[in-house]
């Protein structure tokens, strides 16, 4: 998750505390498990780019609701777990123009517009990056890191 540290706009967005919103599908055990794992991993990591992390896990409602929460609570990173296929398109549309880094552990969400994702290719982790939506969401990733990523436009 601290790949977010390479987002040059993160300090301005976070304003001292990196707020992370973990979105889960409450009806999906995998989603709940992955959300809990992410929350634990982030709390263990403690800091991103030298700033403390505040993690909140929320059930998925609508894309607009997530976008509204990101705006009102100055969320820096929104993380989508598994089991949200039905809502990804809505989330992507709602986050258009919102100053937030959207992240997912499912690789197929990135071509749909989530900014940052992860995949396993030939047994090695791979970073996925949606460049167009990154610009729309005011994410300015270090070009050296972007060069290590699989980029979607």
């Amino acid at each position: 998750m601290r790949i977010a540290a390479y987002d040059r706009n993160l300090p301005a967005r976070a304003q001292g505390t990196v707020k992370v919103l973990v979105v889960v599908n409450p009806d999906d055990a995998d989603s709940r498990g992955l959300g809990a794992a992410m929350e634990t991993a982030l709390n263990r990591a403690g800091r991103i780019a030298g700033m403390p992390i505040a993690v909140t896990t929320v059930p998925y409602g609508t894309g607009d609701a997530i976008a509204a929460r990101c705006r009102s609570e100055h969320v820096s990173i929104v993380y989508l777990t598994t089991g949200l296929d039905h809502g990804v398109a809505g989330v992507v549309a709602s986050l258009d123009g919102v100053d937030v880094l959207s992240v997912s552990g499912l690789p197929r969400y990135v071509p749909q517009g989530i900014v940052l994702g992860f995949d396993l290719v030939s047994g090695s982790p791979t970073l996925l990056f949606h460049l167009t939506n990154a610009r729309r969401q005011n994410v300015a990733m270090d070009p050296k890191v972007v060069s290590l990523m699989q980029v979607y436009r």
């Binding site: 995998d30 498990g33 992955l34 794992a37 992410m38 991993a41 777990t81 598994t82 552990g105 499912l106 690789p107 197929r108 992860f118 995949d119 396993l120 982790p125």
Partner: peptide, 9 residues
């Protein structure tokens, strides 16, 4: 995919 996600997490 969950396996991969778990691995990543």
């Amino acid at each position: 995919l969950v396996l991969a996600a778990a691995a990543i997490a």
